[in-house]
Design a protein around this nucleic acid. Sequence first.
RNA 1: GUGGAUGUGGCGAAGUGGUUAACGCACCGGAUUGUGGCUCCGGCACUCGUGGGUUCAAGUCCCAUCAUCCACCCCA
Length: 425
Amino acid sequence: MALQRPKGTQDLLPSQTAKWQYMEEMMRKVCREYGYEEIRTPIFEATELFQRGVGETTDIVNKEMYTFLDKGERSITLRPEGTASVCRAYVENKLYSGPQPVKLYYIGPMFRYERPQTGRYRQFHQFGVEVLGSEKPVVDAETISLVWDLYQRLGLKNLEVHINSVGCPSCRADHRQKLQEFLAPRREELCRDCQERFERNPLRILDCKNSKCQELTQGAPTTADTLCEDCQGHFNALQELLLAAGVVFRVNPRLVRGLDYYRKTAFEVMVEEIGAQSAICGGGRYDGLTEEIGGPPTPGIGFAMGMERVLAAIEVQKAMPDQVERPFVMVAALGKEAEGKGFALLQALRHAGIPAGMDLLGRGLKAQLKNADRQEAKLALLIGEEELQRDSFILRDLSLGEQQEFPWQDALALISQRYREEHGA
RNA sequence: GUGGAUGUGGCGAAGUGGUUAACGCACCGGAUUGUGGCUCCGGCACUCGUGGGUUCAAGUCCCAUCAUCCACCCCA
C-alpha cells in the first residue's frame, strides 16, 4: 500500500457522512430552539492560548498537543478543545460589549496526539456550547438540559448524567488541604500517579480508577463537604432547576474534571456499550478563564461532546434512522438520440424534486437495469429505438416486474403522480 | 509513554514445514444479440504487510521492522 492516512485519523465515506449529517442537523436544530448561535474559530491557535487557557498541569497541554513552528517561527497548536478559542474570540471581538449572556455553539475537528483506540482519535470532532456573561445557576441548568434534550431527540438510552461542584478557588483550597490531611497518613499506599497528584492536584485522586486508591479515599472529604456558602447555594439551585426540567441526573462527589479551568459546576454524561471511552459529553463552569487569557472577568459555562462517541452510541443502540437516499426512477436510454431525450426528462424530474438517475457509463440495457436494481430504484424508464419511433416510453416497476408503455408527453406527469402516491403527499 | 492481539485476492476466511494457496461474498462474462432481482456455467492471488535468517523445502519456524486493532494513562 502506497500511502495511507495518518495514524488516528479517519476517512468518513458516504455511508458514514449521511449519519454525521443527521447528527449534526439535530445538534443545530436543538441549538436554534435554545437560542444558541454558531461560532467558527480557527483550527489552529497560538500555543500560548492553550497553555494558559487549558492549564499547564493538564495532560492535554503536557503531552497531547500537536504543536509546531510556522515559517514565522511562531509556535502554533492545532486546537485540542474548543473553549479556549471561543473565550479568546469573545474577548478579541469584544462580544462583552453586546447583550449578555452570549450563547454560542461550535461543531468541528479537534486534535490530540494520543495512541488511538476505540472512541479515541487524533483528529476527532466535537460539538460544544459556551455561554459567557452569566454566573447564574439557571445557565448551568440550561446547558445541561440542552445536552439532555439533544440525547433524547437522538433516541439515546441508558445515559448517566453525573454532576458535581468542584467549588471556587477559595473553597477548593480548603478542600485540597482537608483532603491532603486525610490522605497523608497512608500516602505511601497510593498508586504512583496519585503520589504525584498528592502535591500537584490532590482532587484528581478522588476519581482515580485504581481500586486501591478508591479504597483509600473512602470517607475522604468530598467537595460537597467543603463548599462555601456561595458555591453550595449555586449547586443546590442547579439541582432544583434540573429536577424541575425533568433531567435525570446523579450527584457524583468524585467527579473531578481534568481541565484546570473548572469552577463550581462540573458534569459528565456516560454511556456504557461503546467501549472503554464511555464519556460522551463533559463540561462545567469556568468563571476565571476569560480573565486568564487577558480579557475582562467574565463568568462562563459550557460543554463539549465527542461526536464519534455519540455516533457510536446511536449505532450500538440502533437509534439511527435509515439514511439511504434512493433514486425513485432510473432512466435507461439506448442510443444517442434516446439519451438526449432521456437526459432532458431526467433534469425535469430532478427539478420537480424527484430523485432520479441515469446510466453514466454508456452501458447496455441489461447492465442499466441491473444498476437500477442495485440502486434500489422504484421505477425504470426505458427508451430505445422502438419507443423513439412511437414517441413513447416504457415504465417498469422494478419491485413488481411489471411494465407498460405510455405516450412520451405523459412522462413527467405520470412519474410525478407515482412519486406523490409513494410518499403519501 | 506502557501492555496485549493481529497482518493471506476488493471484503470475510481456511491453511499449524513438503507438489498447481481451500471456500464464501463482491466483481466481470455467458446461458437471455432490448429487460434487473432468482438459478446455472465460467473467470478472478507468479503469491501470503515489509526486510532478513533457519531449512533440501517457509504462508507456515526465528529475528527485525512497519501498519492496524484493543487495553492502560488520560480524555470527547
